[in-house]
Design a protein around this nucleic acid. Sequence first.
DNA 1: CTTGGCAATGTAGACGTCTACATCACGGAG
DNA 2: CTCCGTGATGTAGACGTCTACATTGCCAAG
Lengths: 337, 337
Amino acid sequence: MSTADEFRRKKRATIIDVGHAAGVSDATVSRALNRPETVSEATRQKVQQAIVATGYVPNALAKAMVSGRSQTIGALIPTLDHAIFSKFLHTLESELSAQGFNLVVAVTNGNRDYEVSKAKKMLAMGVEGLIVSGLSHNDELTSEARRYGVPLVLTSYYQPDHAFPTIGYDNAKASALALDHLVAHGHRKIAVVHGPLVGNDRTRSRIAGLQEHPAAAGLNLIETDLSYAGGAAAIDRLTPGETAVLCLSDVLAMGALFVCQSRGIAVPQDLSIMGFDDLDPSKFVTPSLTTLSLPIAQMGQHTAAAMADHLMTGKPIRSIELPVMLQARASVAHRQS
Amino acid sequence: MSTADEFRRKKRATIIDVGHAAGVSDATVSRALNRPETVSEATRQKVQQAIVATGYVPNALAKAMVSGRSQTIGALIPTLDHAIFSKFLHTLESELSAQGFNLVVAVTNGNRDYEVSKAKKMLAMGVEGLIVSGLSHNDELTSEARRYGVPLVLTSYYQPDHAFPTIGYDNAKASALALDHLVAHGHRKIAVVHGPLVGNDRTRSRIAGLQEHPAAAGLNLIETDLSYAGGAAAIDRLTPGETAVLCLSDVLAMGALFVCQSRGIAVPQDLSIMGFDDLDPSKFVTPSLTTLSLPIAQMGQHTAAAMADHLMTGKPIRSIELPVMLQARASVAHRQS
DNA sequence: CTTGGCAATGTAGACGTCTACATCACGGAG
DNA sequence: CTCCGTGATGTAGACGTCTACATTGCCAAG
């Protein structure tokens, strides 16, 4: 046995020790803790003192096992190495914590099989709810959630007719909105720079939104890495005559913008660049980036609140559409030529 | 009772059900699962079939309670709304998961009391290890960790004489390295832009490193918000004669750089700007940002590995110093005047 | 043929908490 | 004075898994 094991086995006070110290049974201590009104004032005080004296801390594991309530939610996130998801997780955790829940997280890297396997571990651990990103998942994910009777919320998406609640925004509508903005500024030949399609249904949905747009014919789709370098590289793949670049992520847009800066391509005079996300730096770059502001913080807040509310009151979780807002700044101008 | 509760109570197969289906006792099923070599081949097969037939999934909660091993680690992070911490968490989770551990996270916003309260919840939940950021914490954090006999690792720091293992880099050494670089480029009057000092010992330590430097006399400390806007605002607070700005975070450096771009202040000709962190965009901005590359991914990897190793083998966790590297790029030049 | 040993399995708690039910004392109604 | 309701508390499982110890049967050594 290792030192760690010995430590772990060091006996801590239990509810029975407290009862002993207070001269009552464990059941009375439990009641004093969970339903104080069912216990006499005198007993409550004795128990309180005994708790202090013994340094008792309830064992949440034991409570979770007997009650079936672990007070824990699981979140499966594609990556944390992207501000969108980490900001989401930040607000999600804050709100969940405010409601008394713990959050266990796993990074999936967009791998569905891995996602399912982590989800199963979380369910075995007793999570009371599961939060995932996007719509497309291994079928086993939903079947396992059903089997355990655990609520599952899909985020970064809004699709009210889905079998599970979706809390997010309409990606297709958002990209159409972006394209509207470019078209309104006279652009007709537009490069669309986007990250990998595999395992990323948000990107696919954004592209779908563009392809249904009246101006779809003038679009040149460029797939690249979802990174600054990827955005920069995309500038080399523009087709002559294109006057605007619509990047389906601010990271790509900034990559493109920075390379334009270093090459002396004037933005927006020579080329308009539009982003998607509205990351923190986007309004500070030069020129400031015209982009779509995604309701990430709200999404975290609403997702946590809906989940907590459901778990505490049993009210069903409803899909919520959060608004995407156009941030018209300086990187898009009217077509010059 | 809510619908959710009914779901939750829906009976799932237990080890006893499996035993019943296989015609053996629960103990034998448990052995077949955990120490297959102690069970006959025939029995192992019967149990295997029974598991499939019943759809049995082990209840990790019950196992954790009886074994005292939850396979769960807790991480207390100041914020996830900053790439440094989210990248750390990303690698931490990936590695921990690879070792078979779950990760529960809480965002503390640098509030020590809150940190302790979350730590206590995690300990009550049965986490087997705790990972925090920085050196300064509420004393109760360490005493609780001790009380539960749970290993505690401090990150973003390296201080081998600390009572708990530290895995990170030497912040003071790093900032001195940065200052060396500026001094080597002829700069003598240097503005140091940093985020809030309260609740952030990394920043304090970096400043301490500067103040012990031979060139400390020429430094002008400017405290601002840790944000792009804060970095931008700091430019207005420069003292005449200052030829370089050392920002103790790339976010601040980029905020400063962007505002210089928009005002036509030439970097590095008119002003050298140096960052700290080496965030993803830093090498793509124009001019590319000279900065200190922090070993964040390695830190996540090493922290997870050390924790997992300790928990599995009992080997003590040793402090690890990770190297900080100077990234000499284009935003720092020799003093012109 | 007896006996000791070993492999395979079962039995019986134990982990810490909760809760349905039983018990008890008390006081008011009849 | 008796009876019953009520509030307060104790008792005894139950949650699902693990494991020390007991039991069984078989085989080989003597």
